[in-house]
Amino acid sequence: MEKKITLRKIIITIIAFVVSIAFLLPFIWMLSTSFKIEADVFKFPVEWIPTRWNGIENFKEVWLGQYPFALYYWNSIKVTVITTAISVTVSAMAAYGFSKVNFPAGKFLFLIVLTTFMVPQQSILIPQFILYRYLGLFDSHFGLILLGSFSVLGTFMLRQFFMGIHSDYIDAAKIDGAGHFRIFWSIALPIVRPAIATYAILRFIWTWNDYQNPLIFLRTDGLYTLQLAMQKFTSLNGEFYSLIMAAAVSAILPLVIVFIIGQKQVIEGIAMGGVKG
């Protein structure tokens, strides 16, 4: 009996594995094409392992050529890291204020923040654009960072965790004379650190992959983030598919690394709040 079940499990695993490979074929094709010479890209049957390797030249062209990915990587890293840091700080503070500080206006203010949650970001693009032009924030990394810094979603997520902290901890600290900033910094934050890590990773992924905001709020080539550069690169190199695939690999790779490192947090975070960017 036991053996039969195991055999069944092995067979199902093999079938599922085949399905998963089929599912991943676009990625496999992308990776293999990025190492090919252009003439081999559309050979059929597909050469999954390139016969003529041209990977170094392809990636060199992508990273140092006319649209230098090295620069866009730096732009993306800068924007993503700073956005993530500010967003986590602002959300954590607001989440603490809305859950652990008893002030009468709190409930009402929280309701206001809650209402903005259902505003689709695209329905406010035009006024944001006008406002940005007016304030001189248009076409700057600073402006782009600000757009991603005030996350209602992050506030909700972290608030759930702050609410889970027993009030006794906080009351005890108050009796010892600690103010809210002390309590926030040395008691509340350390307790919710896993949740902060989860939110930070998610925010990192969403900011890194954001295409719409850079498209609308950046104009200068030199300021492009990776996603925007990827699209410009594609329209410039229309027929050089091996280069385009090398660019696509470059655009996806950092996140695959972040994901593999923070896999547990990402999957748990998504499963927990059912959050979506």
Binding site: T89, V90, S91, M93, A94, Y96, G97, F98, V101, N102, F103, P104, A105, G106, L109, I112, V113, T116, V119, S123, I124, I126, P127, Q128, I130, L131, L146, L147, S149, F150, V152, T155, G179, H180, F181, F184
Partner: peptide
Amino acid sequence: KNENLAGLLFVSPMLIGVGILTLLPIIAT
């Protein structure tokens, strides 16, 4: 009073950000 002040300080960055970048624009839309 202290709680009020602390509460407002904690939530004000979020409120200002959401107010200027979301509430104001949706009205403008």
